[in-house]
């Protein structure tokens, strides 16, 4: 299979790499926030939310996404398994 790909010239998709990198770079450029700033923002978010909820800091993901004219800050913040304590 690999060999076949090699013959077809599919060994490395420089195009996809370029596209992915551009998507990220443009999202950061447009929002005027560097990847480092985003890390700081993520740490602060974890701190604030941890005051109220049991957050799993290892699994928190904060990123910028961009399609056409819209840039979005997307935060995925999983909580630690909840032991139900009603009442």
């Amino acid at each position: 299979m690999r060999l076949l790909d090699w013959f077809r010239g599919r060994r490395s998709s420089g195009k996809e790499v370029a596209e992915q990198r551009l998507r990220l770079v443009l999202a950061h450029d447009r929002a005027n926030i560097s990847p480092g700033m985003l890390e700081i923002l993520k740490d602060e978010l974890i701190k604030v939310i941890s005051r109220h909820l049991d957050v799993d800091p290892e699994k928190v993901e904060v990123k910028l996404t961009r399609d056409q004219h819209e840039t979005r800050l997307v935060a995925d913040i999983p909580l630690r398994p909840i032991t139900r304590s009603r009442g």
Binding site: G9, R10, S12, S13, G14, K15, E16, A18, E19, L22, R23, L26, Q68, H69
Partner: peptide, 19 residues
């Protein structure tokens, strides 16, 4: 030739990225 081999950004991706 490079676009055909997926080694270069094609026009569609550039237009899509820049809107």
């Amino acid at each position: 030739a490079l676009v055909r081999r997926n080694e270069m950004l094609d026009a569609n991706s550039v237009v899509d990225l820049l809107a």
